[in-house]
Amino acid sequence: RILTASREARRILLDFAPDLCVGTGGYVSGPVIRDAIRMGIPSVIHEQNAYPGITNQMLSKKAYRTMLAVPDAQKYLSKKADCVLTGNPVRQEILRADRAEARRALGLDSRPLILSFGGSLGARTINEAMETLLLSSAKNQKYQHIHGYGQYGRWLPQALKEKGLDPAKAKNIVLKEYIRNMPECLAAADLVICRAGAITLSELQARGRASILIPSPNVAENHQYHNAMALVRRRAALMIEEK
């Protein structure tokens, strides 16, 4: 497959004749950027995480420029790497969302809002922890809470009902399988509890949100742990390891 990938990459590069190639890591970009460099095509790579993947570690030796989202990543790259700190791209909707307007649109009052989610598919560990927190929030009424439980968390609404909390009737609790209005929710939130994916953390930083991060242990090179630690070391977040 490696030889085939290299031939295919070279064919595409010859046909397309790019002025610049940009690689974002992962095995798919490896052959393309490697062959582009060999063909003399200016090539740059972008590393989104605090711990670079193997592909970017290898390509950083020859790439014209290595763009970093987190300065901590540089120590894992080749000493020959020409690095520049660029951050990760953040959607304009995230940056432009107005906090006051978002809170009005969501029907919130002056109490703090907790926003929690575990990704599009959900995360069982986070859902189990949020089950306890949601029950507490509904009882003491100190907080408002929006939680996205994901595809794998469809058991949660029924589990809460069995413990005496009907999410549909709780005035300070909102449960969603998928949060489709994330810019609005993030603008309105006071505390975010979530995984530590690269883009999620960039959005949290762009909005200046306090966060409790629970890195997924099931990712390549345990990169979410390193992402979270990059913020923890700067006192920008708290982290709870999933064990």
Rank of each mutant, 00 (worst) to 15 (best):
R1G: 10
I2V: 12
L3M: 11
A5G: 14
A5I: 00
A5W: 10
S6W: 07
E8V: 10
E8D: 12
R11I: 11
I12W: 06
L14N: 10
L20M: 06
L20G: 03
C21W: 02
V22T: 02
T24V: 11
T24R: 03
G26C: 02
G26W: 04
Y27N: 10
V28F: 11
V28K: 06
P31S: 12
P31F: 07
I33D: 00
I33K: 00
D35M: 14
A36C: 12
R38W: 05
S43A: 15
S43Q: 09
A50L: 05
A50K: 01
Y51K: 14
Y51M: 10
G53P: 06
T55F: 00
N56G: 05
K61C: 08
K62Q: 15
Y64I: 01
T66I: 10
L68N: 03
A69R: 05
D72C: 01
D72I: 01
A73Y: 05
Q74R: 14
K75I: 13
Y76G: 02
K80G: 00
T86A: 11
G87F: 11
N88C: 11
P89W: 12
V90C: 04
R96S: 15
A97M: 09
D98K: 14
A102H: 06
R104D: 13
R104N: 13
R104Q: 15
A105K: 14
G107I: 09
L108Q: 09
S110M: 08
P112L: 12
P112C: 12
L121S: 10
N127A: 01
E128V: 14
E131I: 01
E131Q: 14
L133F: 13
N140G: 00
K142A: 11
K142Y: 04
I146K: 03
Y149D: 09
G150C: 07
Q151W: 03
A159P: 03
G164A: 06
P167G: 07
A168D: 15
A170T: 12
I173V: 12
V174Q: 12
V174H: 07
L175E: 05
K176F: 01
K176W: 02
R180A: 09
N181D: 15
N181G: 09
C185M: 13
A189G: 09
V192L: 13
C194N: 06
A196V: 05
L201V: 12
E203D: 07
E203C: 09
Q205V: 14
G208E: 09
R209H: 13
A210P: 01
S211Q: 04
P215W: 00
P215N: 04
S216H: 03
P217Q: 05
N218A: 11
H223C: 06
Q224H: 08
Y225G: 01
H226L: 00
A228Q: 05
L231M: 13
L231D: 07
V232S: 08
R233P: 00
R235N: 15
L238S: 05
L238M: 11
K243V: 13
